[in-house]
Structure formats: C-alpha cells, structure tokens
C-alpha cells in the first residue's frame, strides 16, 4: 500500500501550510483531541513563502493531502502573497494531474480561520474530493 493512503484505524495524514495572519495558532491544541487527522502544521509568515517543492515534499513524505490557508484576497499584508500562493498551487495541481497522482490532493483556502471546526471541515473537503476520483484500489492498480 502506498505511503499516502490511510491504513484502517489510522488518522489520515494532512500537511497544512498556513499563514500566521490567517489562522490562530491556538486552534491546533484543540485539533489534537479530534484524532480524525494526523496534521502536520507548518506556519509561515506569509503564504508567498509557499513553494512548489514544499508541497511536493510533503506528499513525498506521506501526506495524503496538502492544504494551504492564506489571508483573504486583497488582504495580504505583503500585497500579493496569497496570489502567488494560488498560482503555485494551481501549477502543482496541474503537474500532479499530469502524472496521474491527483491534483485534488492539494487545495488552497483564502480566508481567515477562527476555530477548529472550520479547519476540520476544510480537511474533510480536501480529502473527500479524492474519495470519488482516486481510491486506494485505483492507486494500487496503477490506474
């Protein structure tokens, strides 16, 4: 079974890159109690710091999906950090689709997150997209 697929009884691994201006760090302490996901949060001073390699390395390291949370559009304190992040995410998604790995694994969310429920919803949405289009069986079959 490929590393990226959740094994029965295990939490689904998600890597989260988040702008410190978009997500309250206190959320993560509460998320530990949820247990549904194995979250690897990576805080960044601005989403413009996101590079394609960071996302791909996270997938290589075993993340089933990568979620990026940025400030809302037009409210980046570095002017266009979130626009840059959007472009890079789009490029990674296209490349992952091109190799058949599933661009759905990478998603970006441009709004401030205030509580753990919101973030859990985003994780479920991010992982849910794959359940219909890219299952463990299809991965194993090399489809």
């Amino acid at each position: 079974m490929p590393d990226n697929e959740a094994k029965p009884g295990y939490a689904r691994a998600v890597t989260l890159f988040y702008c410190i201006n978009a997500v309250k760090s206190s959320i993560f302490a509460k998320l530990e109690d949820v247990g549904e996901f194995e979250i690897n949060p990576v805080k960044i001073p601005c989403s413009s710091m996101i590079k394609e390699t960071f996302i791909l390395k996270a997938l290589e390291a075993g993340a089933e999906a990568v979620l990026i949370i940025t400030c809302p559009e037009d409210s980046c304190q570095f002017i266009d950090g979130n626009r840059r992040a959007n472009k890079r995410v789009e490029r990674v998604r296209q490349m992952l689709d091109e190799i058949g790995y599933g661009g759905w694994r990478v998603s970006i969310h441009n709004s401030r997150i205030e509580n753990e429920d919101e973030i859990c919803l985003l994780f479920r949405q991010a992982l849910g997209q794959g359940e219909n289009s890219f299952t463990a069986e299809s991965l194993l079959a090399g489809e």
């Binding site: 490929p2 590393d3 590079k51 394609e52 390699t53 791909l56 390395k57 997938l59 290589e60 490349m95 992952l96 190799i99 058949g100 790995y101 991965l139 194993l140 090399g142």
Partner: peptide
C-alpha cells in the same frame, strides 16, 4: 535548483504510483 527539485519530486511520486 528549484526546477530540479520539483521534477525530482514529481518523478518520485509518479514512479511510486506505478510501483
């Protein structure tokens, strides 16, 4: 360097998927 790293990751993922 950047493009080398991106391509290396993509190839690793592509071949991992193919087993």
């Amino acid at each position: 360097e950047e493009e080398v790293a991106i391509l290396a990751s993509l190839l690793r993922l592509a071949f991992k998927k193919k087993g």
